[in-house]
Nucleic acid binder design. Sequence first.
DNA 1: GTTTCATGTAACTTAGTTAGTTACGATTCG
DNA 2: CGAATCGTAACTAACTAAGTTACATGAAAC
Lengths: 149, 149
Amino acid sequence: MKRNSRLSSTLHILVHMAEKPERALTSEQLATFIHTNPVVVRRTIAGLRDAGIVTSSRGHGGGWLLGRAPEKISLAEISVALGETLLPFSTEPESPGCLVEQAVIAVLDDFRVAAERLLAEKLDRITLADLTADFRRRFDLIGVSSHAV
Amino acid sequence: MKRNSRLSSTLHILVHMAEKPERALTSEQLATFIHTNPVVVRRTIAGLRDAGIVTSSRGHGGGWLLGRAPEKISLAEISVALGETLLPFSTEPESPGCLVEQAVIAVLDDFRVAAERLLAEKLDRITLADLTADFRRRFDLIGVSSHAV
DNA sequence: GTTTCATGTAACTTAGTTAGTTACGATTCG
DNA sequence: CGAATCGTAACTAACTAAGTTACATGAAAC
Protein backbone atom coordinates (compact mmCIF):
# COMPACT_ATOMS: atom_id res chain seq x y z
CA MET A 1 0.00 0.00 0.00
CA LYS A 2 1.56 3.20 -1.20
CA ARG A 3 1.39 6.59 0.37
CA ASN A 4 -1.78 8.55 -0.33
CA SER A 5 -3.62 5.55 -1.64
CA ARG A 6 -5.79 4.97 1.37
CA LEU A 7 -8.98 5.94 -0.43
CA SER A 8 -8.40 3.75 -3.45
CA SER A 9 -7.08 0.85 -1.36
CA THR A 10 -10.12 1.02 0.89
CA LEU A 11 -12.48 1.11 -2.06
CA HIS A 12 -10.67 -1.89 -3.49
CA ILE A 13 -11.31 -3.75 -0.26
CA LEU A 14 -14.94 -2.69 -0.07
CA VAL A 15 -15.73 -3.82 -3.60
CA HIS A 16 -14.27 -7.21 -2.82
CA MET A 17 -16.47 -7.34 0.27
CA ALA A 18 -19.50 -6.31 -1.76
CA GLU A 19 -18.84 -9.19 -4.15
CA LYS A 20 -19.06 -11.74 -1.32
CA PRO A 21 -21.68 -10.08 0.89
CA GLU A 22 -22.55 -13.28 2.69
CA ARG A 23 -19.06 -14.13 3.86
CA ALA A 24 -16.96 -12.35 6.46
CA LEU A 25 -13.47 -11.62 5.13
CA THR A 26 -10.54 -11.53 7.52
CA SER A 27 -8.00 -8.73 7.73
CA GLU A 28 -5.53 -11.25 6.42
CA GLN A 29 -7.57 -11.80 3.27
CA LEU A 30 -8.26 -8.10 2.81
CA ALA A 31 -4.57 -7.37 3.24
CA THR A 32 -3.63 -9.64 0.35
CA PHE A 33 -5.92 -7.70 -2.00
CA ILE A 34 -3.96 -4.52 -1.45
CA HIS A 35 -0.58 -6.14 -0.79
CA THR A 36 -0.13 -5.09 2.76
CA ASN A 37 -0.33 -6.20 6.34
CA PRO A 38 -3.46 -7.22 8.30
CA VAL A 39 -2.68 -4.67 11.01
CA VAL A 40 -2.51 -1.88 8.46
CA VAL A 41 -5.92 -2.95 7.16
CA ARG A 42 -7.49 -2.94 10.61
CA ARG A 43 -6.02 0.43 11.37
CA THR A 44 -7.10 1.88 8.03
CA ILE A 45 -10.70 0.73 8.10
CA ALA A 46 -11.26 1.15 11.85
CA GLY A 47 -12.90 4.48 11.07
CA LEU A 48 -15.31 2.80 8.66
CA ARG A 49 -16.51 0.57 11.45
CA ASP A 50 -17.12 3.57 13.69
CA ALA A 51 -19.16 5.08 10.84
CA GLY A 52 -21.21 1.91 10.40
CA ILE A 53 -19.94 1.32 6.87
CA VAL A 54 -18.49 -2.05 7.86
CA THR A 55 -18.82 -4.33 10.87
CA SER A 56 -16.21 -6.54 12.38
CA SER A 57 -16.46 -9.63 14.56
CA ARG A 58 -13.80 -11.41 16.50
CA GLY A 59 -12.98 -15.02 17.05
CA HIS A 60 -13.42 -18.10 14.94
CA GLY A 61 -15.30 -17.34 11.75
CA GLY A 62 -14.99 -13.65 12.40
CA GLY A 63 -13.90 -10.91 10.04
CA TRP A 64 -15.39 -7.98 8.18
CA LEU A 65 -18.78 -7.40 6.55
CA LEU A 66 -20.45 -4.41 4.92
CA GLY A 67 -22.60 -2.57 7.43
CA ARG A 68 -25.32 -1.79 4.88
CA ALA A 69 -26.19 -2.15 1.22
CA PRO A 70 -23.61 -0.82 -1.29
CA GLU A 71 -26.27 1.55 -2.67
CA LYS A 72 -26.32 3.29 0.70
CA ILE A 73 -22.56 3.75 1.04
CA SER A 74 -21.25 6.89 -0.63
CA LEU A 75 -17.66 7.78 -1.36
CA ALA A 76 -18.19 10.97 0.63
CA GLU A 77 -18.88 8.96 3.78
CA ILE A 78 -15.94 6.70 3.15
CA SER A 79 -13.61 9.62 2.62
CA VAL A 80 -14.74 11.27 5.83
CA ALA A 81 -14.52 8.01 7.77
CA LEU A 82 -10.95 7.59 6.59
CA GLY A 83 -10.13 11.05 7.87
CA GLU A 84 -8.98 12.13 4.43
CA THR A 85 -8.66 15.80 3.61
CA LEU A 86 -9.96 16.65 0.16
CA LEU A 87 -7.81 19.78 -0.18
CA PRO A 88 -4.21 19.44 0.92
CA PHE A 89 -3.06 23.00 1.49
CA SER A 90 -2.73 24.54 4.92
CA THR A 91 -3.90 27.99 5.95
CA GLU A 92 -2.71 28.21 9.51
CA PRO A 93 -1.41 31.60 10.57
CA GLU A 94 2.35 31.81 10.95
CA SER A 95 2.59 35.56 11.42
CA PRO A 96 -0.23 36.51 13.79
CA GLY A 97 -0.98 40.18 13.35
CA CYS A 98 0.18 40.44 9.75
CA LEU A 99 -2.68 41.88 7.73
CA VAL A 100 -1.27 40.52 4.50
CA GLU A 101 -1.37 37.04 5.87
CA GLN A 102 -4.86 37.58 7.23
CA ALA A 103 -6.06 38.64 3.80
CA VAL A 104 -4.43 35.63 2.15
CA ILE A 105 -5.91 33.22 4.66
CA ALA A 106 -9.36 34.77 4.41
CA VAL A 107 -9.48 34.40 0.64
CA LEU A 108 -7.98 30.93 0.71
CA ASP A 109 -10.40 29.74 3.37
CA ASP A 110 -13.37 31.04 1.42
CA PHE A 111 -12.11 29.06 -1.53
CA ARG A 112 -11.55 26.01 0.61
CA VAL A 113 -15.03 26.02 2.08
CA ALA A 114 -16.66 26.37 -1.33
CA ALA A 115 -14.37 23.77 -2.89
CA GLU A 116 -14.91 21.23 -0.18
CA ARG A 117 -18.65 21.56 -0.45
CA LEU A 118 -18.46 21.04 -4.20
CA LEU A 119 -16.26 17.96 -3.89
CA ALA A 120 -18.35 16.49 -1.10
CA GLU A 121 -21.47 16.88 -3.26
CA LYS A 122 -19.81 15.06 -6.12
CA LEU A 123 -18.52 12.26 -3.90
CA ASP A 124 -21.91 11.94 -2.28
CA ARG A 125 -23.41 10.93 -5.59
CA ILE A 126 -21.01 8.04 -6.14
CA THR A 127 -21.85 4.88 -4.21
CA LEU A 128 -20.11 1.61 -3.64
CA ALA A 129 -22.80 0.09 -5.87
CA ASP A 130 -21.55 2.21 -8.75
CA LEU A 131 -18.10 0.76 -8.26
CA THR A 132 -19.30 -2.82 -8.15
CA ALA A 133 -21.38 -2.19 -11.28
CA ASP A 134 -18.30 -0.89 -13.06
CA PHE A 135 -16.35 -3.91 -11.89
CA ARG A 136 -19.01 -6.32 -13.15
CA ARG A 137 -19.10 -4.64 -16.51
CA ARG A 138 -15.36 -5.17 -16.84
CA PHE A 139 -15.68 -8.71 -15.57
CA ASP A 140 -18.38 -9.59 -18.09
CA LEU A 141 -16.36 -8.08 -20.90
CA ILE A 142 -13.20 -9.97 -20.20
CA GLY A 143 -14.62 -12.95 -18.41
CA VAL A 144 -11.65 -13.86 -16.28
CA SER A 145 -10.98 -14.26 -12.57
CA SER A 146 -11.51 -11.25 -10.40
CA HIS A 147 -8.10 -10.86 -8.87
CA ALA A 148 -4.60 -11.21 -10.24
CA VAL A 149 -1.58 -11.26 -8.01
CA MET B 1 7.30 27.91 6.84
CA LYS B 2 5.22 24.91 7.74
CA ARG B 3 4.51 21.89 5.67
CA ASN B 4 1.77 22.27 3.07
CA SER B 5 1.74 26.01 3.34
CA ARG B 6 3.57 26.71 0.13
CA LEU B 7 0.53 28.23 -1.54
CA SER B 8 -0.37 30.58 1.29
CA SER B 9 3.26 31.48 1.96
CA THR B 10 3.79 32.30 -1.69
CA LEU B 11 0.66 34.42 -1.83
CA HIS B 12 1.85 36.22 1.27
CA ILE B 13 5.10 37.04 -0.52
CA LEU B 14 3.35 38.10 -3.72
CA VAL B 15 1.01 40.51 -1.95
CA HIS B 16 3.98 42.14 -0.28
CA MET B 17 5.62 42.47 -3.69
CA ALA B 18 2.44 43.93 -5.14
CA GLU B 19 2.43 46.55 -2.40
CA LYS B 20 5.90 47.79 -3.44
CA PRO B 21 5.73 47.22 -7.19
CA GLU B 22 8.53 49.63 -7.98
CA ARG B 23 11.11 48.07 -5.71
CA ALA B 24 12.88 44.74 -6.12
CA LEU B 25 12.72 42.71 -2.92
CA THR B 26 15.53 40.32 -2.08
CA SER B 27 15.07 36.68 -1.12
CA GLU B 28 16.32 37.73 2.28
CA GLN B 29 13.50 40.24 2.71
CA LEU B 30 10.88 37.86 1.35
CA ALA B 31 12.13 35.17 3.69
CA THR B 32 11.52 37.33 6.74
CA PHE B 33 7.85 37.76 5.76
CA ILE B 34 7.23 34.04 6.00
CA HIS B 35 9.82 33.30 8.68
CA THR B 36 12.10 31.12 6.67
CA ASN B 37 15.36 31.00 4.79
CA PRO B 38 16.31 32.87 1.58
CA VAL B 39 17.23 29.63 -0.13
CA VAL B 40 13.84 28.14 0.63
CA VAL B 41 12.22 31.22 -0.91
CA ARG B 42 14.28 30.98 -4.09
CA ARG B 43 13.53 27.33 -4.41
CA THR B 44 9.84 27.79 -3.76
CA ILE B 45 9.22 30.61 -6.21
CA ALA B 46 11.64 29.43 -8.90
CA GLY B 47 8.65 27.95 -10.70
CA LEU B 48 6.87 31.32 -10.65
CA ARG B 49 9.77 32.84 -12.50
CA ASP B 50 9.62 30.14 -15.15
CA ALA B 51 5.91 30.94 -15.51
CA GLY B 52 6.57 34.66 -15.87
CA ILE B 53 4.66 35.52 -12.70
CA VAL B 54 7.77 37.07 -11.17
CA THR B 55 11.18 38.09 -12.46
CA SER B 56 14.48 37.93 -10.67
CA SER B 57 17.72 39.81 -11.20
CA ARG B 58 21.12 39.13 -9.75
CA GLY B 59 23.80 41.32 -8.38
CA HIS B 60 23.81 44.56 -6.49
CA GLY B 61 20.30 46.03 -6.34
CA GLY B 62 18.82 42.80 -7.63
CA GLY B 63 15.91 40.84 -6.26
CA TRP B 64 12.35 39.93 -7.21
CA LEU B 65 9.60 41.81 -9.02
CA LEU B 66 6.15 40.88 -10.27
CA GLY B 67 6.27 39.83 -13.90
CA ARG B 68 2.94 41.48 -14.74
CA ALA B 69 0.05 43.36 -13.20
CA PRO B 70 -1.68 41.71 -10.19
CA GLU B 71 -4.97 41.71 -12.13
CA LYS B 72 -3.38 39.33 -14.62
CA ILE B 73 -2.03 36.85 -12.09
CA SER B 74 -4.54 34.19 -11.07
CA LEU B 75 -4.29 31.78 -8.18
CA ALA B 76 -4.70 28.97 -10.69
CA GLU B 77 -1.47 29.93 -12.41
CA ILE B 78 0.34 30.31 -9.13
CA SER B 79 -0.82 26.94 -7.92
CA VAL B 80 0.31 25.26 -11.13
CA ALA B 81 3.64 27.09 -11.10
CA LEU B 82 4.25 25.86 -7.56
CA GLY B 83 3.64 22.32 -8.71
CA GLU B 84 0.84 21.91 -6.19
CA THR B 85 -1.64 19.09 -6.57
CA LEU B 86 -5.18 20.20 -5.81
CA LEU B 87 -6.37 16.70 -4.93
CA PRO B 88 -4.09 14.66 -2.69
CA PHE B 89 -5.14 11.06 -3.27
CA SER B 90 -3.22 8.67 -5.47
CA THR B 91 -4.73 6.29 -8.01
CA GLU B 92 -1.70 4.40 -9.21
CA PRO B 93 -2.25 0.71 -9.88
CA GLU B 94 -0.73 -1.60 -7.32
CA SER B 95 -2.30 -4.83 -8.56
CA PRO B 96 -2.02 -4.74 -12.35
CA GLY B 97 -4.60 -7.06 -13.80
CA CYS B 98 -7.06 -6.81 -10.93
CA LEU B 99 -10.41 -5.80 -12.39
CA VAL B 100 -11.63 -4.53 -9.05
CA GLU B 101 -8.75 -2.15 -8.83
CA GLN B 102 -9.25 -1.07 -12.42
CA ALA B 103 -12.86 -0.22 -11.69
CA VAL B 104 -11.91 1.75 -8.58
CA ILE B 105 -9.23 3.69 -10.41
CA ALA B 106 -11.49 4.41 -13.35
CA VAL B 107 -14.22 5.90 -11.15
CA LEU B 108 -11.76 7.79 -9.01
CA ASP B 109 -9.95 9.22 -12.00
CA ASP B 110 -13.21 10.40 -13.53
CA PHE B 111 -13.94 12.16 -10.27
CA ARG B 112 -10.47 13.62 -10.14
CA VAL B 113 -10.60 15.05 -13.64
CA ALA B 114 -13.97 16.68 -13.02
CA ALA B 115 -12.95 17.94 -9.59
CA GLU B 116 -9.70 19.42 -10.80
CA ARG B 117 -11.43 21.26 -13.59
CA LEU B 118 -13.93 22.71 -11.12
CA LEU B 119 -11.24 23.84 -8.72
CA ALA B 120 -9.08 25.27 -11.47
CA GLU B 121 -12.04 27.30 -12.72
CA LYS B 122 -12.63 28.71 -9.27
CA LEU B 123 -8.97 29.52 -8.73
CA ASP B 124 -8.76 31.10 -12.13
CA ARG B 125 -11.27 33.73 -11.08
CA ILE B 126 -9.26 34.87 -8.07
CA THR B 127 -6.37 37.20 -8.88
CA LEU B 128 -3.53 38.63 -6.90
CA ALA B 129 -5.35 41.97 -7.23
CA ASP B 130 -8.25 40.53 -5.24
CA LEU B 131 -5.85 39.63 -2.45
CA THR B 132 -4.25 43.06 -2.37
CA ALA B 133 -7.70 44.65 -2.35
CA ASP B 134 -8.66 42.52 0.63
CA PHE B 135 -5.44 43.47 2.35
CA ARG B 136 -6.02 47.20 1.76
CA ARG B 137 -9.52 46.96 3.13
CA ARG B 138 -8.13 45.46 6.32
CA PHE B 139 -5.36 48.00 6.40
CA ASP B 140 -7.75 50.95 6.05
CA LEU B 141 -9.98 49.56 8.74
CA ILE B 142 -7.30 49.11 11.33
CA GLY B 143 -4.81 51.66 10.08
CA VAL B 144 -1.62 50.12 11.37
CA SER B 145 1.64 48.92 9.88
CA SER B 146 1.45 46.20 7.32
CA HIS B 147 3.58 43.57 8.92
CA ALA B 148 3.99 42.37 12.46
CA VAL B 149 6.83 40.12 13.47
C1' DG C 1 -12.72 -25.34 29.70
C1' DT C 2 -9.23 -25.46 26.50
C1' DT C 3 -7.82 -24.62 21.94
C1' DT C 4 -7.96 -22.01 17.89
C1' DC C 5 -8.94 -18.19 15.19
C1' DA C 6 -9.87 -13.58 14.85
C1' DT C 7 -9.88 -8.51 16.02
C1' DG C 8 -7.97 -4.27 18.90
C1' DT C 9 -4.27 -1.71 19.89
C1' DA C 10 0.13 -0.12 21.64
C1' DA C 11 4.89 0.41 20.64
C1' DC C 12 8.52 0.36 17.78
C1' DT C 13 11.03 0.47 13.10
C1' DT C 14 11.59 1.91 8.46
C1' DA C 15 11.03 4.67 4.39
C1' DG C 16 9.91 8.70 2.11
C1' DT C 17 9.12 13.68 1.83
C1' DT C 18 10.10 18.35 2.60
C1' DA C 19 11.93 22.22 4.99
C1' DG C 20 16.11 24.05 6.57
C1' DT C 21 21.14 24.85 6.11
C1' DT C 22 25.74 25.37 4.24
C1' DA C 23 28.61 26.30 0.62
C1' DC C 24 30.04 28.18 -3.45
C1' DG C 25 29.85 29.63 -8.33
C1' DA C 26 27.86 33.19 -11.46
C1' DT C 27 26.28 37.78 -12.23
C1' DT C 28 25.72 42.73 -11.67
C1' DC C 29 26.64 47.31 -10.07
C1' DG C 30 29.38 50.88 -7.97
C1' DC D 1 38.09 44.96 -7.46
C1' DG D 2 34.54 44.20 -3.96
C1' DA D 3 30.02 43.90 -2.25
C1' DA D 4 25.47 42.29 -3.09
C1' DT D 5 22.45 39.01 -4.99
C1' DC D 6 20.59 34.97 -7.30
C1' DG D 7 21.14 29.73 -8.78
C1' DT D 8 21.87 25.44 -7.28
C1' DA D 9 23.93 21.30 -5.38
C1' DA D 10 24.57 18.65 -1.34
C1' DC D 11 23.67 17.64 3.06
C1' DT D 12 20.86 17.51 7.65
C1' DA D 13 16.78 17.48 10.45
C1' DA D 14 12.03 16.93 11.31
C1' DC D 15 7.87 14.98 10.34
C1' DT D 16 4.53 11.62 8.48
C1' DA D 17 2.72 7.31 7.33
C1' DA D 18 3.32 2.54 6.41
C1' DG D 19 5.08 -1.67 8.05
C1' DT D 20 6.05 -4.86 11.88
C1' DT D 21 5.98 -7.20 16.34
C1' DA D 22 3.72 -8.41 20.31
C1' DC D 23 0.12 -9.39 23.13
C1' DA D 24 -4.47 -8.81 25.27
C1' DT D 25 -9.39 -9.66 24.31
C1' DG D 26 -13.26 -12.09 22.57
C1' DA D 27 -15.89 -15.82 20.18
C1' DA D 28 -16.65 -20.27 18.28
C1' DA D 29 -15.52 -25.26 18.02
C1' DC D 30 -14.57 -29.27 20.18
